[in-house]
């Protein structure tokens, strides 16, 4: 099986960065998805698309700002009007299966598996670190678990999904364009350095 290189370059070093006393209040982990697939419907074809995806367990499609996890573990996030991103951590065949399921008149399917880096930011100070660059209210009330938003960290576009909205120890999934991955990694490390961050990466 051909090994996929991480979009993070050699300069994105793992380990402990920033303030070093005590357990790290911020954790930054890169864990790639096996598949990322964008599905776009045309006005009026969403119903047909949902019907075509039902056998794969991916219907109904989530509404704006939401995500839904299928029994298979595939997560579908709503990213724009008539547009969804399916994320699967294990099944690399998802792009082909979705392309096969959807006809050109119903929806367009684009494989973005290699186009994104996937970073998990968690810990007691995760919100404070993200608040240095994300102009959104990341409190548990405003963004409960399962909510999705595409926004920026400083000047880099990111899609943020709330994995866990616990007040004391939240977890966030960040998807960023691969070419920006190294830059976002160092921005996050710098943001979290004030409190201390423990970093792990793929490859």
């Amino acid at each position: 099986m051909l090994e996929r290189a991480s979009p993070l370059g050699a300069a994105s070093t793992p380990g402990r960065h920033g303030a070093a006393d005590g357990p790290a209040p911020v954790l930054l982990h890169e864990t790639p998805a096996a598949a990322l697939v964008q599905v776009s419907t045309f006005p009026g074809t969403e119903g047909a698309a949902a019907a075509a995806l039902a056998p794969l367990g991916l219907a109904p499609l989530p509404g704006p700002g939401e995500s839904r996890e299928a029994v298979s573990g595939t997560v579908v996030t709503a990213t724009g009007p008539g547009r969804w991103l399916a994320i699967d951590l294990h099944d690399g065949t998802l792009p082909v299966r979705l392309a096969d399921a959807l006809r050109a008149e119903t929806a367009s399917v684009v494989d973005l598996t290699h186009a994104r880096a996937r970073l998990i930011v968690s810990g007691p100070r995760a919100r404070d670190a993200l608040a240095k660059g994300v102009p959104l209210d990341l409190s548990g009330e405003a963004r409960p678990a399962g909510s999705v938003a595409t926004t920026r960290f400083a000047h880099v576009t990111v899609q943020i999904r709330v994995l866990d909205d616990a007040p004391a120890d939240p977890r966030f999934e960040l998807l960023v364009m691969s070419s920006f991955a190294g830059s976002l990694w160092s921005d996050l490390v710098e943001a979290a350095a004030e409190w201390g961050v423990a970093c792990r990466r793929h490859g």
Partner: peptide
């Protein structure tokens, strides 16, 4: 509102 006429009319998403 969405610029696309169909979306603005609330037709699907």
């Amino acid at each position: 509102t969405a610029a696309r006429p169909a979306a603005a009319a609330g037709d699907g998403r």
